[in-house]
Design a protein around this nucleic acid. Sequence first.
DNA 1: ATGGTTGCGTAGCAA
Length: 271
Amino acid sequence: MKIATWNVNSVKARLPRVLEWLDEFKPDVALLQEIKTEDHSFPALEIETLGYKIATHGQKSYNGVAILSRHPMAITQTGLPGDDTDDHARFLEAIISPEDTSITPVRVATIYLPNGNPSQDETGAKSDKYRYKLKWMDRLIKHTEKLLKTDEAFVLGGDYNVCPTDGDVYDPRAFANDALCRPETRMRFRTLLNLGLTNAFRVFNNQPNVYSYWDYQRGAWAKDNGLLIDYLLLSPEAADRLLDAGIDKKPRGREKASDHTPVWCTLAPGI
DNA sequence: ATGGTTGCGTAGCAA
């Protein structure tokens, strides 16, 4: 089973790129972030034509996440638990159950973790945005602890807005105080991994300076000034089935590209 | 050079 995550930066502005990528890459499951549209205005017909079922947790103008699946899926969670006042659409979870019963079902979540910048306010204290990010990460840790108790195969994929190490940033010194790199951010990401999750890409590639995001500004793509912030984190039961993982840089090089490129993994049908 | 680019929505925010 091929599972991919991609921050598309507006599904409507990106529709030709998304359709072309689905057609050529043919993921079984695509976890999308920053669809930047409400559920009713998601371009469903074009994507369904390619054989995908669609689940969305949309929002006007900002955020918004979606799951596309070639297999039957059932939504298990809309929005990240733990704060009823949080109205950002950043989390959607479903169980993917292939009709071929020789393939063990997989729970997936699409995650758009808050950016958190600027990390400080005028007084030098943590900004409201950064505080929101850190609380969101604490909630994700709590929810993951709950999921791990089920002993199921699951994949938490998305734009984590975290550079776990200096090797994941093109200019670590310039980003030292960035909300993606601050120690408080990195500590929480390690806490998440230390619950027992596996970063799929890092099983197969330990090189530094491999990226999934390049800013639109200052010729970042041409200069390979990027960040690695998109991940597929696997439960032990999913990691046991991990066959391969990678980053597909092609979509970032095209006309009207998203600033992120897809990250993918393949899982064996079962053990 | 304190800039630059993209998307949403049509001003200014978010990234």
